[in-house]
Design a protein around this nucleic acid. Sequence first.
DNA 1: GCACACATGTAACAGGTTACATGATTTT
DNA 2: AAAATCATGTAACCTGTTACATGTGTGC
Lengths: 177, 177
Amino acid sequence: MAQKNLLPMILLGLINIEKKTGYDLKKDFETEIGEFWSVKHSQIYLELKRLEGNGEIKSTTGFYGNKIEKTYYEITKKGKERLDSWLDSYSDILSVNKDEFVLKLYFIKSRKDPRLQDLLQEQYRQRKQKLEHLLDRKELLFSTKKERDDNYGHYLILDHAIRREREYVNWLEEMMK
Amino acid sequence: MAQKNLLPMILLGLINIEKKTGYDLKKDFETEIGEFWSVKHSQIYLELKRLEGNGEIKSTTGFYGNKIEKTYYEITKKGKERLDSWLDSYSDILSVNKDEFVLKLYFIKSRKDPRLQDLLQEQYRQRKQKLEHLLDRKELLFSTKKERDDNYGHYLILDHAIRREREYVNWLEEMMK
DNA sequence: GCACACATGTAACAGGTTACATGATTTT
DNA sequence: AAAATCATGTAACCTGTTACATGTGTGC
């Protein structure tokens, strides 16, 4: 699905912050980055093997603090170059936003269709809930100025997501009137 | 990639409006529906074969007006049932919005990073252009009340896209200040 | 003792993109 | 005559999802 393969960049970007295991990366996708990107653990492990094969990351396996055996990955010079060259590039191409509700709306031609109100109610519930969740996250992560400054990019993204979701909710509210 | 297979629904929905050829459907994706969904012609033809195999559409091949041989598809009772049952369902699950610019922002921790301004400028240019395009479409397709009422769903979608894009542009503008 | 989180993988399959292929008709 | 558009398909490949698979550590 995504036409552009960005997973390698995400993994390099995350590993660049500090060395990580596949499981650490999986966790990142469940919390932080999960707000705007998703991937399954199976795909992470596959991609890590590929990146290591390319020499863009290197691994060290061992028992750290005599617990379970883990494999830590750290970024190499080559990997850092690839990451930087991506961050420097302007090649972004706008992709379409695939939204199932919007799709249904398209096929409901009439504003009197009885299905419209039900769909709207449900979508409103879901979107409102999502907005609440995002606001909670913002409160949790960025309640102080220091927190915002320390992770400016992440703050901006969360702010963006909140604005987008709020606009979505407004749009739905107008439709429901 | 979409985790949910919605292409069959789109094709059924489009064919339900009127009988169409694969090429007609391809054209739909380039104009109307292309604003919020994309697919390649190879995929369309494959999916049409599958839908016909399922008995959800049926085809008639022939020379219409002694030109090129075309294959027209029309929806069957079974296909219409599947379409309706999808339109009636509330199973929408919110998927994450994968946006490359947002991803880069995440990895640029500092607001002083020199790459930030360049990326911003470029993204602003692209988004502004997209917004202009959407406004043109609205003007072209829905300048009269009748046009809006005749295709209410489509109008709502375009309105939504414009709001979303406007919010994106506002967000970028605030960042650039 | 049991459930849950930690930790890492493989295999089968489905969906989507890119490239390959071909040929007719219409427009410049 | 050449180029663009109409019209339909196949094949190779890649990404991502789902399911299968296994084993350890920790908290109740």
